[in-house]
């Protein structure tokens, strides 16, 4: 179907061909055929504006919204599986996710505005890989496993390896993200996502995801921090010996924040926030996220 039908309705200037497959196989075949010339349309919250602005002009658009299987949240004993077409608002409001992985719901509830959250999808957001987007640090901190499918092959990639660069992921042109598998967090484990945005609904200037597990004495058993918005891909730190076994107190927090700051070597810089500011804010938001996660680990809010 071509859209160059005359009149004024269209705002997308470049013609393209549109497909709406009903099965994953059908979608994968199309992807395999058109590869770099094709774009997957999920919620359309990034792709459509980019097409409007002429930033991308795919020759083929493969709309996967008619593939029913791609819209489920499933739970089993240890794991939650989220299909890529699940909308942000569902993640923000899902009782399952809120209970098992609160920071994922927290991150989803901060994306854009109500309209965007009802259209935009988790799969679309992470495959787009905007460095300032909210899911990437959360999924990296959680070590989520991304199930990737092509016509011939299925493979699993950790979220910590999925994001290669700004707007660049591990996905090959003929591959589709099929599911996101996340281990439920254990007992005495808290998660939190803290975001600095300049305008409500805006992209993160800094977004920090923290996962804190405490032992029976309240000492740190496990600590993962992932920072989004500051470099071209999320920076994830799995803390080891130095911090483990210590109490959550000022000196510990300072050390954690220092480690985060040290890890940032090429901070993003733009007219709203320069690199030095972003780096400093990464530390401030690490502190806030870790404290909140630790509090949750102790059963607080």
């Amino acid at each position: 179907m071509a859209v160059n039908t005359g009149g004024e309705k269209e705002v997308i200037h470049q013609p393209f061909e549109y497909f709406a497959p009903k099965t994953i196989n059908e979608a994968l075949k199309l992807l395999n055929k058109y590869r770099e010339d094709a774009k997957i349309l999920a919620g359309g919250q990034s792709l459509v504006p980019m097409m409007n602005l002429g930033i991308v002009s795919p020759k083929y658009v493969i709309d996967i919204n008619n593939i029913g299987k791609l819209s489920e949240i499933r739970e089993n004993k240890n794991q939650i599986t989220i299909a890529p077409l699940v909308r942000h608002y569902e993640i923000a409001e899902s009782k399952i996710i809120k209970r098992a992985i609160p920071m994922l719901s927290e991150a989803a509830s901060h994306i854009g505005d109500m309209h965007i959250r009802h259209r935009g999808t988790i799969g679309g957001a992470i495959c787009h890989a905007d460095p300032a987007a909210d899911y990437a640090p959360v999924l990296a901190a959680l070590d989520a496993k991304l199930e990737i499918q092509s016509v011939k092959r299925r493979r699993i990639v950790s979220a910590r390896n999925f994001f290669k660069d700004a707007f660049t992921t591990e996905l090959k042109p003929n591959e589709l993200l099929k599911a996101i598998h996340i281990q439920k967090v254990g007992q005495r484990t808290g998660t939190a996502y803290q975001k600095l945005e300049f305008v409500s609904g805006g992209y993160a200037v800094v977004g920090v995801a923290a996962l804190v597990a405490l032992d029976g004495e309240g000492l740190i058993e496990k600590l993962v921090v992932s920072v989004g918005g500051v470099e071209r891909r999320p920076i994830t730190i799995v803390f080891n010996g130095d911090v483990l076994g210590r109490k959550i107190e000022n000196a510990t927090i300072e050390e954690i924040c220092g480690a985060v700051k040290d890890k940032i070597s090429e901070p993003l810089s733009d007219i709203h926030a320069d690199g030095e500011y972003r780096r400093s804010m990464a530390a401030v938001y690490t502190k806030r996220a870790v404290l909140k996660a630790a509090n949750r680990a102790l059963g607080g809010e």
Binding site: N4, G7, E8, H13, P15
Partner: peptide
């Protein structure tokens, strides 16, 4: 042009 899309394409 006869359509917005044609006008935009030509402009480019």
């Amino acid at each position: 042009a006869e359509s917005r899309i044609a006008a935009a394409e030509a402009a480019s």
